[in-house]
Amino acid sequence: MKRRNTVTKASARLVLQAETTNQIKPYHEAVAEFIKHCQIKGLSSHTVDFYVKELKQTRRAFAEIDAPLHNLRQFQTHHIEQLIEHHQALGRAVSTINSRLRASRTFFSFCLRKEYVTANPHDGVNQLKARHEVGPTFTKRQLKKLLDAPDLTTFIGLRDLTIMLTLAHTGIRLTELTSLCVQDVSFDGKGSITVQRAKNRYARRIPLTDRLKTVLHAYMEERGVLDTDALFISVENKPFHARSIQDRMRHYGMQTGVSKEVAVSPHAFRRTFCRLKVEAGTNIFVLQRLTGHQSLEILRRYVEIYGRDLEEAIEQGFDGI
């Protein structure tokens, strides 16, 4: 029997279904779907912003190495390796490259579940080895200079002192500080701050030091009752945003001269909190509860560098020698 030159309608439908299953999905469309997925999943705005930023930069780099952005299915492991080499040639920091690799790996895992790719091109590609360093911290002298700088005869000065003292005496992150509401502060007994919007999604309570309790109470009396619940506000009675807080930190850094020695930032206050607690012998598990670190790895670095047991151990065994 001679074979026909045309295929049956049933065969044509099978071919069409195969083409639909192996649909071509451009990078930018898949990223938009991934970001929407992250928002629906309930990830924090900070995490979503991280993915938006890193995937945008990664897309730009992929374009520069002529990766197949028009069809995710064509991505292979060598494209990820070329991406790393491209970043290294531009002199990007190891931490920057690793952040983009983490974001990209998670994105391609999403694409694999959606069947936009047949395999994650990141499989077999490890993150770059980074130096495990602890960022710069303030000395007690530098910290005192910063806390003594605000003019307490003005609302701005009182607010800025309260912000810096909160950062210094609780070790909270900038995003956690800006999310604080008036109702998150309690003056009952020892007093405490409840961090509701923590990075690891677990709310935590941080007791107040005596000085922070006094300063916070004075600030909240001066702040008064407003339409906004935001704890820290501008002179226009609007929530005081992260960028403005960073600007104020830099202002006091330049005013006191501390910025010539250490970059003054909210995170420098957090690192200093960790250092001072370790030097004081605070239990690492208690410190983890105070700071909200999901892993003990970072806190172990502080213990290794600032732990007092090293000074005590180095003298042991040399009695009379």
Results as ranks from 00 to 15, higher is better:
Met1Gly: 12
Lys2Val: 10
Arg3Asn: 05
Arg3Asp: 01
Arg4His: 13
Arg4Lys: 11
Ala10Val: 07
Ala10Arg: 04
Ser11Arg: 11
Ala12Met: 09
Ala12Gln: 09
Arg13Asp: 01
Val15Tyr: 09
Ala18Arg: 12
Gln23Tyr: 09
Ile24Arg: 10
Pro26Gly: 06
Glu33Ile: 01
Phe34Lys: 07
Ile35Lys: 00
Ile40Thr: 13
Lys41Cys: 08
Ser44Ile: 14
Thr47Met: 02
Thr47Asp: 00
Asp49His: 13
Val52Ser: 05
Leu55Phe: 02
Lys56Ile: 03
Gln57His: 13
Arg59His: 12
Arg60Trp: 12
Arg60Phe: 14
Ala61Arg: 10
Asp66Gln: 13
Leu69Lys: 02
Phe75Cys: 03
Thr77Phe: 00
Leu83Asp: 00
Glu85Arg: 09
His87Pro: 08
Leu90Met: 08
Arg92Thr: 05
Ser95Asn: 06
Ser99Asp: 13
Ser99Ala: 12
Ser104Glu: 12
Ser109Lys: 11
Glu115Met: 11
Asn120Val: 09
Pro121Phe: 04
Gly124Thr: 03
Arg131Ser: 03
Gln142Trp: 04
Lys145Thr: 03
Leu147Asn: 01
Leu147Pro: 03
Ala149Trp: 08
Leu152Cys: 04
Gly157Tyr: 02
Leu158Phe: 07
Asp160Gln: 08
Met164Gln: 08
His169Cys: 06
His169Val: 04
Thr170Ile: 02
Gly171Lys: 01
Ile172Arg: 00
Arg173Lys: 13
Thr175Asp: 03
Thr175His: 15
Thr175Cys: 11
Leu180Arg: 02
Cys181Gly: 13
Asp184Arg: 06
Phe187Pro: 00
Gly189Tyr: 05
Gly189Gln: 03
Lys190Pro: 01
Arg197Ile: 14
Ala198Asn: 05
Lys199Tyr: 00
Arg201His: 14
Ala203Asp: 09
Arg211Asn: 06
Lys213Leu: 04
His217Trp: 01
Glu221Pro: 12
Gly224Leu: 04
Val225Tyr: 11
Leu226Ile: 14
Thr228Ala: 08
Asp229Thr: 15
Ser234Lys: 00
Ser234Gln: 03
Val235Trp: 12
Val235Asn: 14
Ile245His: 07
Ile245Gly: 01
Asp247Ala: 15
Arg248Thr: 13
Tyr252Val: 05
Ala263Gly: 10
Pro266Phe: 04
Pro266Leu: 09
Ala268Arg: 07
Cys274Met: 08
Cys274Ser: 11
Leu276Tyr: 10
Glu279Met: 14
Ala280Ser: 15
Thr282Trp: 07
Ile284Gln: 05
Val286Glu: 07
Arg289Ser: 13
Gly292Asp: 06
His293Leu: 02
Glu297His: 15
Arg300His: 07
Arg301Cys: 11
Ile305Phe: 02
Arg308Lys: 15
Asp309Ser: 13
Glu311Ile: 09
Glu315Tyr: 15
Glu315Met: 14
Gly317His: 03
